[in-house]
């Protein structure tokens, strides 16, 4: 990706004002408006030198409504959630949570870089936990390898064999009961989340018109 200075100037029409509104509506999002672009986040991020944009530019672009470029960048997928930026931000912006919210929107919009298996991993992890209540490392890795680049599987095979020999590759799942409808049922809780999300969207939609 080009430097910010070399980027073509966007027309107002290409910006999406609903994008920053949506982000600042989040419980942790109000502070986004307070960003002074000091760059502490990018400076402390152990992965910023491998990113196309880095967290400081991301925040600036979110505020200006540049949704397309933000959701298509690889920066958000290179965030390892180490929270260095979050604790160093002088304006108390929860930048790691901003990155999570952007990942959610990128996944929903189908904007995920092909070269990166992480978006696939996040989705598959989510699906496995919804079914079993717990993650299953071996299945998860197998699924991600099959759905992304199966050649990577060959590369990882020796490690897999060694893990297996050491009794560290669990083949059977260790699930909890999901979908019983009884007290504490995980599925009931997850379904309630969907319902509450919809109600919240509806309310936000009503208040912004």
């Amino acid at each position: 990706m080009q430097n910010a200075q070399e980027r073509p100037v966007l027309d107002q029409a290409e910006l999406d004002p609903e994008f920053p509104r949506r982000m600042t509506r989040k419980a942790w999002g109000e502070n986004l408006r307070r960003c002074i672009q000091c760059g502490n986040c990018t400076g402390t991020c152990p992965l910023s030198e491998y990113m196309d944009l880095g967290p400081r530019k991301i925040i600036s672009m979110v505020r200006s409504g540049n949704k397309t470029d933000v959701l298509k960048c690889d920066t958000i997928w290179l965030c390892a959630s180490c929270y260095e930026c979050t604790v160093e931000c002088p304006k108390e912006i929860k930048i790691t949570d901003v990155m999570y919210a952007l990942k959610q929107q990128a996944l929903d919009a189908g904007h995920t870089p092909r070269s990166m298996p992480l978006p696939v991993l996040d989705r598959e992890f989510f699906n496995i936990v919804m079914k079993l209540g717990r993650s299953q490392e071996t299945w998860l890795m197998a699924l991600v390898i099959l759905k992304t680049n199966w050649l990577r599987g060959l590369d990882l095979a020796p490690m897999g064999l060694k893990l297996f020999a050491q009794g560290r590759l669990s083949l059977l799942p260790d699930p909890i009961k999901v979908g019983t409808g009884k007290k504490g049922d995980l599925k009931t809780i997850m379904d309630a989340c969907d319902r509450l999300d919809k109600e919240e969207e509806k309310e936000a939609g009503v208040s912004s018109h």
Partner: peptide
């Protein structure tokens, strides 16, 4: 009857569910 904490992956997919999953 513990369930997954959601790790870093869940939060990238759905915020409410990630919180509710851990809080359960």
């Amino acid at each position: 009857d513990w369930n997954c904490c959601g790790a870093t992956a869940y939060m990238a997919v759905d915020e409410a569910k990630a919180f509710a999953l851990a809080a359960r």
